[in-house]
Design a protein around this nucleic acid. Structure first.
Lengths: 137, 137
DNA sequence: TCAGAACATCATGATGATATGATGAATCAG
DNA sequence: CTGATTCATCATATCATCATGATGTTCTGA
């Protein structure tokens, strides 16, 4: 359902939500979540570009959430890597799906896609966090 | 959502459902659906192994559905290639998801997964076919 | 200013999905 | 039996994703 890369991003963001607001070093994140260090570096760099995270270099630096966990949607975290763009694509790969032969199945599929999209757009990082972030609410 | 391979399989099966019951040559299928010929060959061979299709060699041979279109679930067509196995996997890749910290989001995700699985298990090839197969019902 | 800390980036490799071309094996018509 | 037809299979190529190691760049604190 999600690519490995998007899952890394999501796990990291949820992990950070459970931590204090101080920056966390990438080595610590990689070790705690068992994610390849340099690969994670690229992933988090991308998240910083997208303003999901903030990075600080030097002593005491690291990554932290750019906004409160309850204001970061799962969609924001995933979109830079996977494109689950509202599932407008026809199940059969037809260029024109909603043509004359659009059947109940096409409608049903569209609705399934809408459910998935609604989940990622309507769920926040805080909803997935298990520790501090949830208790803070 | 679906791999290219699974989509090829699905498009072929729907295509065959719209044809008469006589075998269709793989060259004809590949040309009509714009799918690489030899790659499709392997895909259809797999579907034949799974008893979704029947293959016949020699003059007048080709592929045809092994059962009526309304008895073939999308799940049967897709499963040999993609494993959408009831989405039991945790969104965060945690080994144990439904532990003490299972939150509303985990429940919501589980429900989304169930919807997807229900769609593929509850929809038949006939539901997607646009031509002959639907009019025959 | 300088050394260490920590992120940023580059070059390269491994793997699986997708694709192509050539060849083998089975079936049928005559 | 023979040859055309058609699926089955093998060897190889291409590409994106995932991963690793080495090096560059920026920041902080003394």
């Amino acid at each position: 359902m999600l690519s490995q890369t998007a899952e890394y991003a999501l796990r990291t963001v949820v992990f950070l939500a459970d931590r204090s607001e101080a920056p966390v070093r990438i080595d610590e994140i990689a070790a705690a979540l068992d994610i390849p260090r340099n690969y994670l570096s690229k992933v988090l760099y991308r998240l910083a570009q997208e303003s999901v995270l903030t990075s600080t270099r030097g002593q005491g630096g690291g990554f932290r959430l750019a906004s409160p966990a309850e204001r970061i949607r799962l969609l924001d975290v995933i979109e830079p890597f996977d494109h689950i763009g509202s599932q407008r694509r026809c199940l059969l790969g037809r260029a024109v799906c909603s043509d004359q032969r659009a059947c109940e199945a096409h409608e049903a599929w569209k609705e399934v896609g809408a459910r998935v999209a609604a989940f990622f757009a309507g769920t926040t990082v805080a909803d997935l966090a298990g520790g501090a972030a949830r208790r803070r609410r």
